[in-house]
């Protein structure tokens, strides 16, 4: 009886988040996000540009790639709907609210991929709260933490500069990519994640839940 009640109460929870964490890795949709910020301190940091790209089971859908410069001066809601963005508008920048609206549904339906998740998540959290969006539950993975996990098997103290995005990519034989553009970094991060999953040998039977020991996975509430 108690079990039934328990299941009933938490069905909603399970149907939104548990499948992502318990589904075979090959079925999980990932969305790599990168924010370019005005500061490394999440309290003051504002988003200047944002890029994301989606993929699953090693396959990156290039048509899902999104990039936008965020104009903080832009009055909210004044730029065209995201789908109709023209290059001119993108260059001028679009309003943060429009971008977040466009991103919002994807946050809960994908596992988010970051290189150094804590800063970007803190900023997203602040922004979503400020925009009075509903609270959203997310699952994420952090390629930086995964690199730390792997490196700690060999080093007790991590070598200087060994967990930057480009250093991590180099270790896994990924080609050099231009850095510090939000979309390029998001794409580079997603490639790195897929390479890390392969390195770990986790893809075949594993799910994200089984990677908890790496400290590279997490769940969080935004807003």
């Amino acid at each position: 009886m108690l079990t039934t009640l328990w299941n009933y109460l938490f069905r909603g929870w399970k149907s939104t988040r548990a499948p992502l964490f318990e589904a075979p890795l090959s079925h999980v949709p990932f969305l790599a996000i990168d924010l370019e910020l005005t500061s490394l301190d999440s309290n003051n940091a504002e988003i200047t540009s944002i890029g994301w790209v989606a993929g699953s089971h090693g396959k990156i859908d290039l048509n899902s790639a999104f990039y936008c410069v965020v104009d903080t001066q832009q009055p909210l809601g004044q730029s065209p709907v995201i789908h109709g963005l023209t290059p001119e508008v993108l260059r001028e920048g679009c309003a943060l609210e429009d971008v977040i609206n466009h991103l919002f549904d994807k946050l809960s339906t994908n596992v988010l991929v970051f290189h150094n998740a804590s800063l970007d998540l803190a900023v997203l959290n602040k922004v979503i709260a400020r925009l009075s969006k509903p609270r959203v539950e997310i699952c994420f993975v952090d390629t930086l933490q995964m690199a730390v996990y792997q490196l700690k098997k060999r080093h007790s103290v991590l070598p200087e500069g060994s967990v930057t995005l480009s250093a991590c990519r180099k270790r896994l034989m990924l080609p050099v990519a231009p850095a510090h553009n939000a979309l390029d970094d998001a794409l580079a991060t997603l490639q790195l994640w897929f390479a890390q999953v392969h390195e770990l040998g986790a893809s075949r039977h594993g799910c994200l839940k089984k990677l908890r020991h790496t400290r590279a996975t997490g769940r969080s509430n935004l807003g």
Binding site: G58, K59, I60, L187
Partner: peptide, 13 residues
């Protein structure tokens, strides 16, 4: 690039 994918190809996939 229309409909194109970039695949990290390993034994897994």
């Amino acid at each position: 690039l229309k409909g194109a994918e970039l695949i990290y190809l390993s034994d897994d996939n």
